[in-house]
Design a protein around this nucleic acid. Structure first.
Lengths: 141, 141
DNA sequence: GTTCGTGCAAATCTTTTGCAGTTTC
DNA sequence: GAAACTGCAAAAGATTTGCACGAAC
């Protein structure tokens, strides 16, 4: 696990530091999960005792720039970060505010007829909002 | 125009104030546009000289709660507000950062097979990211 | 007259920035 | 050794909050 994180960093031309390894390994061991910068920092503090907020943000910024991570703007007004292994969409729970990756196969192709004449489309982001199973179960008690 | 804004406020059980009327009339006369709280305030300052930032946020919060407005979290880390007349999706320009409403008819139905077992889906938000026509034209000069 | 909304200012929260010291290559 | 990264602290920017006054019903 430590090895592949290092390889990913080198492949992306990023220097290998304990901070970057820790963040990337956290993502690799929890693909499909999304966290805020502070949630990431808090999880890593035991392993990297002095990890600074600023460093966490800089690592994540670098990962976003390298397309290792995605940065999701949430209705709560902060960003969540997750690893970007393959194209996917999201389900966001309106109660626990967790975001889950959704396989693209789960969504049929979206056909764009004449969305906006003249515009160039790079990316389509589909986000489902609702109540996740955990929250639905807890709510109906 | 002034009349229908007043009716919309009353229908939603909201008191009619000059500030709320001004915000709502701005939206009504520019449906499909989206602005930040400060952009809204700046446009209204000539009409409502003392309009406070806090008031703008409170008006928008009330409109979101009443489903008069939608609140869009953007990659730039702030919210854009727009009027919510009928279901639609969005196109966000990566250069000028404007958001445009997209008619739902422009997007074929999205079929959900088995997205997340047990989850309840309330809403589907589709956002296209790319370069709008204006920016594409300017870029190719 | 009571309830609710506004303006103002301070506070909060997330994220960014600058810099000196340290690590990576 | 040069370039890049980290920690720290301060700054920035958006949004929220509390409260006294005034407006809406």
């Amino acid at each position: 696990m430590s090895l592949s994180a290092e390889i990913i960093l080198r492949e992306n031309g990023l220097r290998v530091t304990p901070q970057r390894l820790a963040v990337l390994e956290l993502f690799l061991s929890h693909s499909g999960f999304h966290w805020s910068a502070d949630q990431i920092r808090n999880q890593l503090l035991p392993r990297i005792p002095g990890l600074a907020r600023g460093t966490t943000y800089k690592v994540l910024e670098e990962f976003v720039r390298s397309h290792i991570c995605e940065e999701l703007p949430t209705p709560e007004g902060l960003f969540l970060y997750g690893i970007r292994l393959k194209p996917h969409h999201h389900f966001a729970c309106r109660k626990c505010h967790r975001w889950f990756d959704i396989d693209v196969d789960g969504v049929d192709n979206i056909h764009i007829s004449s969305i906006l004449p003249g515009a160039v489309i790079d990316d389509i982001a589909v986000t489902f909002h609702g109540l996740c199973r955990d929250c639905r179960v807890n709510e109906s008690q």
